[in-house]
Amino acid sequence: MTTAEKTKAAPRQRSDVILNYLRPKKKFPNVWCAGCGNGIVMSAIVRAIDKLALSKDEVAMVSGIGCSSRMPIYLDFNALHTTHGRALPFATGIKFAQPHMKVIVITGDGDALAIGGNHFIHACRRNIDITAILVNNYIYGMTGGQGSPTTPTAAFSTTTPYGNAEKHFDPCKLAEAAGASYVARATVYHAPQLEKAIMQAVDHRGFSLVEVISNCHTYFGRLNRLGDAVSMLKEYKEKSVTVARAKRMSPEELKDKHVIGTLYEDDKTEFCDEYQKIVDAQMGEK
């Protein structure tokens, strides 16, 4: 039975939603390991976009380099798979040139916070209406498990064979401090919450960040003895606390916990809107 027949026969199932957004002529399979969290993130994005009823044509999906950055190639949107760390400047060009577009950036911890760190803080500062979905798996997956800016202190990677001597970034705190106007966190265990966060982020006018804690059992899990994909997801379940619950917990209790939900939101003015005011004023003056 073809997808089209299925759609006609019954109310649209979850799998049909996903199929509807997969790029029709793309040669599959994808590059991701079996059990990778990227699939959960991708389906959450697709469901969020479907619920927001956005037209596929008005969505531009931009990414850099890394495992999660392959996502735009698989999805049926305007796809720009760019250079390592640079997705946000390319996305800025698209959004600024065509402010009606919904621009979503898929990035990883290495892509956004190491090589792309400067672009990340400045996109936040401008508060340009772009949604960045940062898939944080604490490691460089595509190149084989090297330490990243989110690799926890003492954790093992192929470039921290004796344990990581460095400190790590909290991407959400970084984004908030740099000026982002919507910041949320979810894990790949919390798929419905992730979907909701993405919906809110895409709907928000201004720079929005959704950090998704995701499993790289192949490298981070194996090197740190965290077990397979399922055990890593179970750990996310156990270690996550909602924003509401976190408010009642001490810093000591919150150590090693993932606080999930909307962490920050404000309604400061958005860059393209402000620039349009300048254009309107200057064109009016001529």
Binding site: T82, R86, A91, G93, I94, F96, H122
Partner: peptide
């Protein structure tokens, strides 16, 4: 737009160009 560096500048230029 004044970007944060030259890497970002040419990135934004390409983004604008693919937008027509």
């Amino acid at each position: 737009i004044q970007m944060e560096d030259e890497i970002g500048s040419i990135g934004a230029v390409v983004g604008a160009s693919v937008s027509g």
